Simulated scan of single mutants.
Amino acid sequence: MNQEDGKAQIVPCALHRDSNNRQNLNPDLMRVDESGCVIDDLEKLACLVEGKAIQAANWYLARKAVPKLFSQWIRGLAILGITAGGLITVLQSIDPQAGWGHNGFVVLAVAGALLGLDKYFGFSTAWMRYINAQLKIHQLLAEFQMDWAQLRQQSGDEATAEQEQVMLERIKVFRMAILKQVEQETQEWMNEFRNSIAQLDKETQQRTEALRPGGVAVAVSNAEGIDQGTLKLFVDATSRGAFQGDHTTIKSLMPGAYTIRVEGTRGGQPVNASGNVTVAAGTTVPVTLTLPAAT
């Protein structure tokens, strides 16, 4: 603090949010004397601190509009999607011949994506945080205004040094409470964003793991006497070509259920065998297919 002719000088001492939603130091007019305790104009200081509280409350009031709008639209569309998707699914079960029943699952998936979008970007939680912070600041402001009126009444026109100290302490408590509230809301936002990122990474990893391709190790029994080059492999209705010997491996199958079938000829007569398997992510499932025995 600088002194000139025994008068107090301006010192920077407060936090505010800029247009980029960051907290930056901003100089406020806080006038102190050489001891740093007794304020030369308590009324102006009280008005300044009160104005900063109103500014903080107005910041939350103005910025809650955008997350409120997105939250209401996203949640509303998600509710409509869930309702419509469920209704389509029910109608499909009533009329199995309808060819549009699968659209219900698509609508449900879109509704789930909307909810995930809201969760990741935090529109609903930001709306709630802003309302909560604004209400708490208004409460602190009302308490300060009532306490300040009482202190002014007790001090009269000429406050004693002891009374000034009490008034200054009340201003300090109020200012610190406002800054604490802003800090708490910012910390909640940081924790929420950090948790959203962690949850997104976890879900992405789980989905990636769940989609790892697997395979099927096929063993053919009773393959003796099969005509050379006639043994062919099928996955569901898709041909995987011919293979030699009595075993082969099918690779790059997405997780799911499959029907594995082998076909060939023995002495010009067709023979075949099939079996069902379920391929898990990143695993190779064994299956043995038994051809009819040679007669």
Rank of each mutant, 00 (worst) to 15 (best):
G112D: 07
F123Q: 07
T125K: 12
Y120V: 06
G99Q: 05
W127E: 15
L114W: 01
L115S: 03
R129K: 11
I137K: 03
A113W: 03
F121W: 04
V106E: 11
G112W: 00
G99V: 08
K136E: 09
S93P: 13
Y130W: 05
I137F: 03
D118L: 01
Q97F: 04
V106Q: 15
W100R: 04
A126C: 09
A109L: 09
V110P: 02
S124W: 02
G122V: 14
D95H: 08
A111R: 02
Q134A: 06
F105V: 15
I137L: 14
W127F: 07
L115R: 05
I94T: 11
G112I: 01
G112C: 02
A109T: 12
L114S: 00
P96S: 06
S93V: 11
T125R: 09
V110Y: 11
L117N: 05
A98F: 05
G104M: 01
A133C: 13
I131A: 03
V106N: 10
H102D: 14
D118T: 01
S124V: 03
L135Y: 04
F121P: 00
S124N: 03
F123C: 04
W127K: 04
L135K: 15
L114M: 15
K119E: 13
Y120W: 10
I94Y: 09
I94M: 14
D118W: 00
F123P: 07
V106Y: 13
L114H: 01
L117F: 08
A98D: 14
A111C: 05
G122I: 05
L115H: 00
